[in-house]
């Protein structure tokens, strides 16, 4: 037994002791992962010491033998020994693995950020659709409220009052100035279907007087509509003679012809959210980030607050 073996035993004992101290047996010994970790640490310590001792011994006792290669560099030569078998197998194996990884492993199985995003988005969309497939009534309104608060309130305001005329006041169906603007300028917002636009005042006949609509008539019909289709007899007459032909006697609109101007209906709100609009107040951009259910929810919310 020489000094080397003695030193190895001392170091092994010290390292095992350090492993023991650093491992909290009181709390962690029942955990299989901890047990495996400590086992691994013990094996690592013993294997390391064993390998180090073997090579140090070899350096101390080994002598060089065999034929030298032809090439030598300033007198420093190299033995012409065969490649160790284990090493050669690992070397060739690495080359084969490299080919596989380069041609198949990486391209086929590679991670991509966009790939992960696509999977995430598809999974979440599916979950959303399943969870809210049959959403109705108050729950739809609740969803609409949260969608409204995050996507619409920046312009229409937290209380949906349009922030002093900067956007449409959604607590009422139409404001008087909006009605007047539409009658005077027409509307090409195609709110019910492609290509159905409302003519401006030069295309609006009053059947009662058999003439184009006049300023006074516009004013009275605008008050009538903005007031929720009541009050104002004169306005009611103008409405019946001019507007009812398309918007219906009660202002509820006609499918494919004219939008509902008596109240917000779901298809109207969904249409405006999907396509945006330009009118008396300004331009509303289309909101592209919402899905179908969310648009319906916003419509339900707007209906609920405009009552």
């Amino acid at each position: 037994m020489n000094k080397l073996y003695l030193g190895a035993i001392v170091v092994t004992a010290l390292m095992l002791f350090a492993t023991y101290v650093s491992f909290d047996f009181k709390h962690g010994s029942s955990d299989i992962v901890n047990q495996l970790a400590i086992l691994g640490a013990v094996i690592l310590v013993i294997a390391t010491i064993f390998v180090v001792v073997k090579y140090v011994r070899q350096m101390q006792t080994d002598t060089a033998s065999g034929d030298l290669m032809e090439d030598n560099w300033d007198g420093v030569g190299e033995y012409d020994n065969p490649v160790p078998t284990g090493w050669a197998i690992v070397f060739l194996g690495t080359m084969i693995w490299g080919m596989w990884y380069y041609l198949v492993g990486y391209p086929v199985n590679s991670y991509s950020q966009i790939g992960e995003y696509n999977e995430d988005a598809a999974a979440l969309n599916k979950k959303f659709e399943e969870k809210y497939k049959n959403l109705k009534g108050d729950e739809l309104v609740n969803m609409g409220e949260s969608v409204y608060l995050s996507n619409c309130s920046a312009c229409h305001g937290l209380s949906a009052d349009g922030i002093d005329g900067q956007a449409a006041d959604l607590n009422v169906r139409l404001e008087k100035k909006v009605v007047k603007h539409v009658i005077e300028n027409g509307s090409s917002n195609n709110l019910v279907s492609e290509g159905m636009s409302m003519p401006d005042r030069n295309g609006l006949f009053n059947a009662n007087t058999n003439a184009l609509i006049t300023d006074a008539e516009i004013d009275s019909v605008a008050s009538y509509v903005a007031n929720g289709f009541k009050g104002n007899e004169a306005g009611a007459k103008v409405f019946a003679g001019t507007c009812a032909a398309c918007h219906g006697a009660d202002g509820k609109g006609m499918e494919f012809v004219a939008p509902n101007i008596a109240s917000f209906d779901s298809s109207l709100v969904v249409n405006v959210v999907a396509n945006g609009k330009k009118g008396a107040i300004g331009t509303m951009p289309k909101i592209t980030v919402l899905n179908k259910k969310q648009k319906e929810a916003v419509a339900a919310y707007v209906q609920s607050i405009s009552k």
């Binding site: 996507n151 920046a154 312009c155 922030i163 900067q166 300004g282 331009t283 509303m284 951009p285 289309k286 909101i287 592209t288 980030v289």
Partner: peptide, 11 residues
């Protein structure tokens, strides 16, 4: 530019 307008930015 997709979801805010000139009027909105102005205010």
């Amino acid at each position: 530019g997709n979801y805010r307008t000139t009027e909105w930015h102005e205010n």
